[in-house]
Simulated scan of single mutants.
Amino acid sequence: MLKIENLTKSYENKVVFKKLNLEINDGEVLSIVGPSGIGKTTLLKIIAGLCGADSGKMVIDGQKINVTEKNQNALIGVIFQDFNLFPQYTLLGNITLAPRIVKN
């Protein structure tokens, strides 16, 4: 289960989202849709531990996650959809590259 409470993120003077609340139970599927620049990718980056939020709380499967800083021990992985794959590796090689480097 993923539970987010009062998540707030801003860049300089632009508020991306303020006091966002979200709960996704095991087995549920959520789609995040909206126009460009609304904060979809920022939310996913915070959930995955790739960037920090300004404030808020997050719990993943009962484990409290510090959302105010990057979390190298995050429980969520991200595969980007754009050109971020390395051409010299297979798809499997690209997907497993980061865990192999970070966790050996």
Rank of each mutant, 00 (worst) to 15 (best):
L7I: 10
N25T: 00
V16E: 07
L43Y: 13
D54A: 03
Q63Y: 06
L30T: 10
F17P: 03
A48K: 12
G52Y: 11
N6H: 07
Q72A: 01
L43N: 10
K19R: 08
L50D: 11
V33A: 05
A48Q: 14
F80Y: 01
V78R: 13
F80H: 04
K57R: 04
E69R: 08
N66I: 00
K18V: 07
P87N: 07
T41Y: 13
F86Y: 13
N84S: 11
K18Y: 14
T68N: 07
K45M: 11
I46M: 12
G52M: 09
K64F: 00
F80K: 09
G62Q: 09
K19C: 10
T8Y: 07
E69Y: 01
T41G: 13
I24W: 13
A48S: 09
T41F: 15
N71W: 01
V29K: 13
N6K: 13
N25C: 10
Y89T: 00
T90A: 03
I24R: 01
V78G: 06
Q81P: 01
K64H: 06
K40H: 13
K45N: 06
V29L: 15
G77W: 13
N71K: 06
I65P: 04
I32L: 14
L43P: 15
K19Q: 15
G77Q: 07
G27T: 03
I4F: 06
T41S: 14
K14H: 12
E5I: 01
G49P: 05
C51A: 02
N66G: 01
N73Q: 12
L44S: 07
V15W: 15
T41L: 08
V29R: 07
G39Y: 10
I46G: 10
K64G: 02
I47K: 10
D61S: 12
G62E: 07
P35D: 06
F86Q: 06
T42D: 15
V33Y: 11
F80P: 11
I79V: 15
V59L: 05
A74W: 00
F80S: 02
K45T: 03
N13W: 11
K57C: 02
C51K: 11
L91Q: 08
L20R: 11
I65Q: 05
D61E: 14
I38K: 13
E28S: 06
I76A: 02
D54R: 04
S31W: 09
V16S: 12
S31H: 10
V59H: 02
N6C: 09
V33I: 10
S36N: 01
L50E: 08
N6I: 03
G49S: 07
S36T: 04
I47M: 12
F86C: 09
N25W: 03
D82G: 10
F80N: 03
N73M: 09
F80W: 00
I60C: 08
V33M: 15
V78M: 15
P87S: 01
K40M: 08
A53V: 04
T41V: 10
I4S: 05
K57V: 03
Y11T: 12
E12N: 12
T42C: 08
M58Y: 00
A48R: 05
F80M: 00
N66E: 07
V16T: 14
P87Q: 00
N13M: 14
K14C: 15
N6R: 11
G56A: 08
I24T: 03
L85Y: 06
I38S: 12
N84Q: 09
E5H: 14
E12I: 15
K57L: 05
T8L: 05
I46H: 06
A48H: 06
P87H: 03
T41D: 09
